[in-house]
Amino acid sequence: MGLQNAATLPAMKTNPKFIFFTDFDGTITMQDSNDFMTDNIGYGYEKRRQGNLDCLTEKVTFRDSFKDMMDSVTKPYSECIQYLVDNIKLDPYFAEFFQWSLANNIPVVVLSSGMEPIIKALLKALIGPDAEKMQVIANFVGARPGKTIDEEGGWEILFQHPESGFGHDKSIELRKYSSLATDVRPTMFYAGDGVSDLSAARETDLLFAKKGHDLISYCAKEDVPFTVFEDWSTILNKCKEIVEGKSTVQDAAREGFEAYKSGAAGV
């Protein structure tokens, strides 16, 4: 890929020195909305968890496992959204982090393997009007032939990158920023927790991986640098240190790997 033109990238319009990219489900939120639907109104926890494990061992692609999960959820789409709005909770420190990012010209970009309408509805309910200041790049939803999305069995997930085993290959968006000319390229942070974040893990300057979750196992196996977070207070404190010049992304990644080796990463 050649050098990207910064003017074409929404998150670059304020010429930020830092950008925070993040997964949504189970990272910004306490629960994964897609797992929650699958476990409670789809085919259940055991089959869903086996699909996650099969992705980690590359027995199945994330795209195919995730489509199988979503196909098991047949309630009308509007009912699915309301069910999630009623049940999904925000990480207790994310709103504070987001306000700090707005005050410090650090755009937050959500890169999700979930569905854009659900994410935007949850962000609006959990954060309020400021949620519109967050760019969301995710998969889509469409009606099945002869049906509407608001009838039983009427919707299906439509992937950003159906040709990719990830369905939504997050590395594609990240590379648009990492390929910017050195004098304008921002420092890139990314936070995630699971198998949908594998494509993003190598493409950022500092990866925050959630304690006790699958992404850490992958990073340790593949020797991908990371730092561990338990909630967004950890992320906020570490980002403040880096933005204020008290630490570097290299320091943070080294500390993260040391935490993993000492058994403090929860895996």
Rank of each mutant, 00 (worst) to 15 (best):
S217T: 12
S78W: 00
F66P: 06
V85S: 05
K59R: 15
F21K: 11
E151V: 10
A259V: 09
E244N: 13
K261Y: 00
E255N: 12
V85H: 04
D68S: 09
K261R: 12
P117W: 00
Y83E: 02
K75N: 10
D91L: 00
G51N: 14
G153K: 03
F140T: 10
A201L: 11
D91W: 00
I216T: 03
P16K: 09
L102W: 00
T148Y: 02
A209Q: 05
F20H: 15
V136S: 03
H168S: 03
V224M: 04
I172K: 14
K210P: 02
D25N: 14
I81E: 01
G167H: 02
A103Q: 14
G165L: 03
G212M: 05
V73R: 02
A209G: 10
F18I: 08
I137A: 05
D130G: 07
Y190L: 14
K240L: 11
D150Q: 14
D54P: 01
L174I: 12
S171T: 08
V141N: 02
H213F: 12
R63P: 04
E96V: 13
Y45P: 07
D35Y: 01
I28L: 11
Y218C: 05
K170P: 02
E244L: 13
F208G: 04
I242C: 12
K75M: 14
D25F: 04
C239N: 06
D23I: 09
K176E: 13
F159D: 11
I216H: 01
C219P: 05
R49Q: 14
R254M: 09
A6C: 04
G263F: 02
K133I: 04
P145D: 13
V249F: 08
G194A: 05
K133C: 04
I118W: 00
R175A: 09
L206A: 09
L174K: 02
G114L: 03
D91M: 01
P76Y: 06
A259F: 05
D35C: 10
V228N: 12
L102D: 07
C55D: 05
F226S: 01
T57S: 15
Q31H: 09
W100E: 07
F36Y: 15
M115Q: 14
P129T: 13
T57Y: 13
T8C: 10
Y83S: 01
L180E: 10
F94I: 11
V249S: 04
A259I: 13
L3F: 14
E116T: 09
A201P: 09
K147F: 01
P117G: 02
E96M: 08
V60H: 03
N105S: 09
N237W: 08
D214H: 11
I127H: 04
I216R: 08
G263V: 07
G153L: 12
A259E: 07
T38P: 00
C239V: 15
D223E: 14
E156C: 03
G165Y: 02
M1P: 13
V224L: 03
D54G: 02
D130S: 13
E116Q: 08
G44N: 09
I235A: 07
D91P: 01
E241M: 12
E203R: 09
N15P: 07
I19K: 00
A259H: 09
K221Y: 11
H168W: 00
K124M: 09
P225H: 10
T182S: 11
S112R: 00
S247V: 05
F18E: 06
D169C: 03
L206Y: 07
L236M: 07
L174M: 05
V110R: 04
T38G: 08
